[in-house]
């Protein structure tokens, strides 16, 4: 039953890898379903990670770190909103700007404040979100399949992991079962109709962009104060873009988004497992190939070879109210 154990271990780490992707992917979902493209997920995650690391180090509280991460990330989201909603600027350019400012500012401020080469101080365990072992997790470890799922996948994760997966049904419910969700999807498809109904397009879009900021804050905090014990320069390492890929892969829908993030998480976990290990009949698979798979899959999907990804119709187009 050794391979079962291996599968359980890989699944466990796949879930941990997919959590930041999932938060960021859902973040992008709110924004893009409302018609605001966001390639600045990466930057907002980085800002969130840095703020969480800083505040958790200063106060010793993981929850305050999380709260600060959310506030900082929302601030950056509102800058994106200010440029792309209020001033009808180009959303792609604004996203690029957010990524640059976030990358530079977190590294520079980290160095100025802590002088640790761009890192924030190492956190103690009480200042982090640590995994909780569920009752009897150790005792059930030996039971094949169910016991392993219980003890290695369900148990031992930190609270943000559960929150990420809880965010999926919540997002689904908000989007498809509430008035807010209907309006949010409508401003992304046909803002003029929403406007005619007497609802403000800018305020709906601002609300969506703020939701995006909140979730990016969670994603960032997860990286710096749950998965690691502090912020490291450029620690998002392209995760914001993988989340974007997952969002397209999921065709901008919440539940498929979860599956896409899990798939990319599994790829990540396997690529680490397979590093330098030859597979019978194939030889060693280059790690770089595994890392490129999410992007390649997304391109193949976009090319229309697996289904067809249709973006929200008004995505990327600033709304101009007719006079």
């Amino acid at each position: 039953m050794e391979w079962l154990d291996l599968i359980a271990q890989v699944s466990g780490s796949a879930i941990r890898f997919s959590v930041p992707l999932l938060f960021a992917c859902l973040a992008g979902l709110y924004s893009e379903r409302a018609g605001v493209f966001d390639i600045g997920l990466e930057g907002k995650m980085l800002v969130g990670a840095f703020t969480a690391g800083t505040i958790a180090a200063l106060t010793g509280s993981a929850w305050l770190g999380l709260l600060a991460a959310i506030l900082a990330s929302v601030l950056f989201a509102l800058i994106h909103g200010f440029a792309s909603i209020t001033h009808r600027g180009n959303q792609i350019v604004s996203g690029v700007a957010i990524n640059f400012i976030a990358a530079g500012l977190t590294a520079q401020l980290g160095e100025t404040w802590f002088k640790l080469g761009g890192q924030t101080p190492q956190l103690t365990n009480d200042a982090r979100f640590m995994g909780y072992a569920w009752p009897f997790a150790d005792a059930l470890r030996g039971v094949p399949v169910l016991g392993q799922i219980y003890s290695q996948i369900l148990s031992g994760q930190n609270i943000l992991v559960y929150l990420a997966f809880l965010a999926v049904p919540i997002t689904w419910w908000l989007l498809y079962r509430t008035r807010f969700g209907l309006r949010l999807r409508a401003v992304g498809e046909n803002p003029a109709a929403v406007d005619t109904a007497g609802i403000s397009v800018p305020s709906m879009r601002y609300a969506a962009v703020a939701c995006c900021g909140i979730l990016c804050g969670f994603a960032g905090a997860y990286l710096s104060i749950a998965q690691s014990a502090g912020f490291i320069e450029h620690m998002t390492a392209g995760k914001g873009f993988i989340a974007l890929a997952a969002l397209i892969f999921a065709k901008w829908r919440p539940v498929p988004a979860m599956w896409a993030c899990l798939l990319f998480g599994v790829l990540d976990a396997i690529s680490i497992r397979l590093q330098g290990v030859p597979i019978a009949g194939i030889g060693t698979v280059p790690v770089q190939l595994m890392q490129a798979v999410p992007y390649i899959l997304t391109v193949v999907l976009l090319a229309g070879f697996i289904g067809h990804a249709v973006a929200p119709k008004a995505g990327g187009v600033p709304y101009v109210k007719e006079k």
Binding site: I79, A83, V93, S94, V96, A97, I98, N99, F100, I101, A102, A103, G104, L105, A107, Q108
Partner: peptide, 9 residues
């Protein structure tokens, strides 16, 4: 990088 980002913004 910060200055470039601000100019882009």
């Amino acid at each position: 990088v910060v200055i470039q980002g601000l100019v882009i913004l």
